[in-house]
Every structure is written in structure tokens, then in C-alpha cells.
Amino acid sequence: MQRAMRLLECVAGHRYGAPAKQLARETGLALPTAYHLLRTLVHEGYLRRDKGLFFLGEAAERLSSSGAQQKRRGALADALAHCSDAIGVPVYYAMYRDGEVDVVCVADTPGAPAVEEWADFRTTAHAHAIGQCLLAQLDEPARRDHLDRHPVRPVTRYTVRDDESLLRRLERVRRMEPVTEHQEYALGAVCGAIPLTVGSTAATVALSLPARQADRLMPAVRQLQYEVGRLLGSLSLSISM
């Protein structure tokens, strides 16, 4: 396995391919051993051979892509943890893709735990700040399409009551304006979300607080805006996962 990895790393360093003899020499492998491993790697799709030269294959490229995605996810998790520590609240990152709310990453602590997902975030976008912030970034046909699939229903006694009331509320949200909700998704919790522009994808960073700390909500949201703005340059690739 270790020798095969050495060969893969060596091939990756040759943009225009390399012959077996050169790869054997550069990795310090006996030529018969190198030939055997190269044939195996080609068979498994990690390498491809063209006119006597070896190149990375589709399987290796998928592996590389997966590793890069994990690195981006790690950078995002670190950034959210920084925001969570700085403000003392749980912080969430979510995107709207493939017609659904996708909560990608959450940073919280035992002293400031995240809101429990007791009702599926995907089907209750109308009730929480994350979902409302994402829906506010869509055009009206996309909003109505979402509500056709996930109609408004009461989650708590504070939840908006019907589709049209929600649509009117979303229309009043100004571009890049934070969205807040008070106990609409979970009794005892208030939440705020700020919109992000990630290409053409709707995204948001959000936070939650116990309802008894509702007076902290807007100051915390403003601080989150500041922290995200400060980190946005380094996060530009990470948040587009």
C-alpha cells in the first residue's frame, strides 16, 4: 500500500505523464515491482496509461476532490467555532441547494448548546430563522415551489400560520438584512440569521439564544455580521462546499 501511494504521488508530480522506468527510478522501486503496482493501479482506475505514459485516473481525482472538500469543511468548522467562542452562542451555517435547506455545519459548546432539531429543518423552513433567511433570498416562484413541497404548518404557537402570511413577511425582508424569529421553531429559543452570497446559491450563518436572553439577539447578530465579514476572505472557498 505504501509503495502504491509513493507511485501515485510521483505520478501526480508529472503533469504530462511519466514512463514506468522513470517512476521506478524516482520512487526507488525495482522495475518489476513498479510495473506490477502500476498495472494494478491502472486496473483499479487510480492511474491511466496513454502511449507508455502514466497519468492520474478518475479514482485518484475523486480521492483528491474528497480530500479537498474535507479540508474546506475543516476550515468552515474552525471559522464557526471562532464565531461561537467570540460571541458565546451556537453558530450554524446552512445553504439552500437542490430545493432543500441543508444545515452544513454547527458549532456549539456545552455551555451554549445548539437548538435540538426536533422537527426536520428541511420541512420547517418557514418556522426558523435559517429557513426564512434562505427563502428570503429566493425569487417568488422558487419560494412558492418550496412551499408547494413543504407547506406552512404550525410548529409552535408562535409560528406563522399560512403560506401567504409567510410570503408577505419574506417580501418585506430587505436585501442582506438579518432575519430573526422568536420561539417560532422551538419554545424557549430565539434565532437570528444573516444572508450570505455564495455565487448563485442562497446561504446563511445563524445563531440562537435562550428566549430569556432575547434582548441579546440583535447585538449578537450584529457581532456575528462583524465576525463573518472579517473572516469572509479566508472562507470564500470553504463556504461554497
Rank of each mutant, 00 (worst) to 15 (best):
E181L: 09
G192S: 04
G192H: 11
G192N: 14
R212D: 09
L207H: 06
L196W: 04
Q213S: 12
L207G: 03
E181G: 09
A202N: 03
G199C: 12
C191F: 06
E177C: 13
P178A: 05
T197N: 08
Q183E: 15
Q223I: 09
S200G: 12
E177N: 10
P195Y: 04
T180K: 02
P219V: 06
D215C: 03
I194F: 00
E227M: 03
L224K: 14
M176D: 12
T197D: 07
A189F: 08
Q225N: 06
R212W: 11
Q223H: 08
Y226R: 15
V228N: 00
R216K: 04
A189S: 12
Y185T: 15
A206Y: 02
T204R: 05
L207I: 09
E184T: 13
E184H: 14
M218I: 06
T197M: 10
V190H: 07
Y185L: 05
S200L: 10
Y185H: 14
E181F: 06
M218Y: 09
E177S: 14
M176Q: 11
V190C: 15
M176R: 11
M218S: 12
A186F: 10
P195Q: 00
T180Q: 10
V198Y: 08
G199R: 15
G192V: 07
R222F: 04
A206M: 10
R222N: 07
A206E: 02
V198R: 13
H182Q: 08
T204C: 15
L217I: 04
L224G: 00
R222P: 00
V198C: 11
A206P: 14
L217E: 08
A211V: 11
A211N: 07
E227Y: 12
A206R: 01
V179F: 02
Q213G: 04
R222G: 00
T204Q: 02
A211D: 05
S208P: 01
P178I: 00
R222C: 04
I194V: 15
Q225W: 05
A220C: 09
E177F: 06
S200N: 07
Y226E: 08
E184Y: 11
L217C: 10
E227F: 13
R222T: 04
V205A: 13
M218V: 05
A206C: 04
V221G: 00
A211W: 07
G192Q: 07
R212M: 07
V198N: 06
T201Y: 10
A189W: 10
A193K: 02
P195M: 12
E227V: 12
V198M: 10
V221P: 00
V205N: 03
A186I: 13
R175S: 14
L196Y: 02
A214N: 08
G199L: 08
G199Y: 12
A203K: 03
V190F: 04
Q183K: 13
V205E: 04
A214H: 12
Q183D: 13
L209Y: 05
V228G: 00
A211C: 11
P195K: 02
A186M: 11
Y226G: 06
T204M: 05
R175K: 15
S208K: 03
L187M: 11
A193E: 04
P219E: 02
C191Q: 08
Y185W: 14
L207D: 08
I194E: 09
E181R: 10
Q213N: 08
P178Y: 02
P195L: 00
L224T: 00
E177T: 12
L187D: 15
